[in-house]
């Protein structure tokens, strides 16, 4: 075995370890997002259908981007932008909100494991 072989073996093993961790850390991939906003019915969004979603709130428009099974806030008229900083959401049970604009986001798996969330 020469040095290149050892490096290839090492990288391969690292890849496997990474993949095992990635695959088996406890989270279920989200299949749907529930977007709730003031007064409106809950919007059920398919995360496997790439799209831009605009939701009206009292401060203005909150914009979501759906891309390849994940969703994020890309714009919202709130002061702190906590919702935007929360980044991508893709695991079932993830929850994020833009409370100033009264919009919440909740991710559910394809086998919806619960009816409501206590937080």
């Amino acid at each position: 075995m020469n040095r290149t072989d050892l490096i290839i073996l090492g990288l391969s093993l690292a890849l496997i370890v990474g993949l095992f961790i990635r695959t088996f850390h406890p989270h279920e991939d989200g299949a749907y997002a529930y977007i709730r906003s003031d007064g409106a019915s809950v919007q059920r969004v398919d995360l496997h259908h790439d799209q831009i979603i605009r939701v009206k709130g009292p401060l203005g428009e909150t914009v979501f981007e759906v891309n390849a099974g994940k969703i994020r806030f890309i714009n919202s008229p709130c002061p702190n932008k906590i919702c935007i900083h929360s980044g991508w959401h893709d695991a079932a049970g993830d929850f994020a909100a833009c409370l100033p604009n009264r919009v919440t986001l909740e991710i559910k798996g394809s086998t919806s494991s619960y009816d409501s969330l206590s937080y």
Partner: peptide, 26 residues
């Protein structure tokens, strides 16, 4: 996040999840 349930979801009970305080998950 504070909730109260009445009855059931058809033939099964209402299932409630408790949020994890740190990772945004359940």
């Amino acid at each position: 996040g504070n909730l109260k349930v009445l009855g059931t979801h058809g033939d099964r009970p209402w299932r409630i999840a408790i949020r994890h305080p740190r990772n945004n998950g359940v």
